[in-house]
Amino acid sequence: MTAVENTLNVIASDEAAEIAAARRNRLVAIATPVATAATLIFLWEAGVRVFGVPDYIAPTPSAVASTLVEEFPQLMRNFWPTLYESLMGFAVGNLAAVLIAVAFVHSRLAERAFFPIAVFINTIPILAIAPILVLIFGAGLTAKVVIAALICFFPTLVNMVRGLQAVSPQALELARILSASKSEVFWKIRLPSSLPFLFSALKIAATTSVIGAIVGEWVGADLGLGALIIDATFNFRSALLYATVFLSSGLSVLLFAAVTIAERLVVRW
C-alpha cells in the first residue's frame, strides 16, 4: 500500500468512526431517559409491594397498566369530550389573542386601555375563576371551552404583541423606501416575522388548554377526563385515577406534538 492510500484509508475509517459515534450518541440520548423511567417504574412497583402500601393509596404500575387496558372503552368515552373542549378552547383563545394583539399593535390607545385589564384577568387563578364561569355559562360545553380559551389567551397575547413588534428597523426602512402601505407592511413583514413568536405561544397553549378543559370539568361535568378524575378519587379507584391522569398527559403531549409539527412545516427559517 502506498502512503497516499494509507492516508485515504485512515481518513475513510475516521469518517466511518465519526458516523458510528454520532449514531451511538443518538442511541444514548434516547436510551438514557427510557432506562431511567423504566428503573423508576420498577422501583415504584417494588416499593408498593415490599412495603405493602394499600391499593387505594398508591396502585402498582402494573395495576395501572391493566386498568388502562380493561377500562379502555370508558377512558376513551371520557377522552373525546376533553379533546374537543381543549381544541375548541385552544382555537378560540388563540384566535382572540392574535386579533387583539393586532389591534394593540395598530392602536396604542387600544393597548393602553385594554392591556392592564388583560393583565388583571391573567392574575386571577384559573381555579378561582372556573366556578364563576360555570355559573355564567352553565355546566355545558361552553364553560369548559371558555376556561380553556382563557388559560391560552394571555401568553399568546403577550408573545404575539412582541412578535408583531419584533421587526428590524431596517426592514421598516426598506418598506418605507418601497412606499409600502400599512397593510402591506402588516401582511408582508410584521405577520410573517411574528410567526416564530406565535408558535412558541401555541406550544404553551397546547398543554394549558388541556388543563383548562380538565379544571372546567372538575367544577361540573358528567363526562370528560376531569370528571373521571373526580369520580375515581371519590370512589377510591386509584388505579383508574392514575390511568386517567396518564391519558390526560397523553392528550397534552398529542397537542404539543401537533403544534411542533405544524411549526416545522411553517417556520422554515
Binding site: A171, A175, E184, K188, S193
Partner: peptide, 27 residues
C-alpha cells in the same frame, strides 16, 4: 432610487428569488 443596507435586510422566510420579487409585489 433603491437602497442597499449594510446588512442585507432580506426577509428570512422568503427565498432569494422571492426576496428579489418583493419590490414588485408592493404597491
Amino acid at each position: 432610487f433603491a437602497f442597499v443596507f449594510q446588512d442585507a435586510t432580506l426577509l428570512p422566510w422568503r427565498s432569494a428569488l422571492k426576496n428579489v420579487e418583493l419590490p414588485l409585489e408592493i404597491g
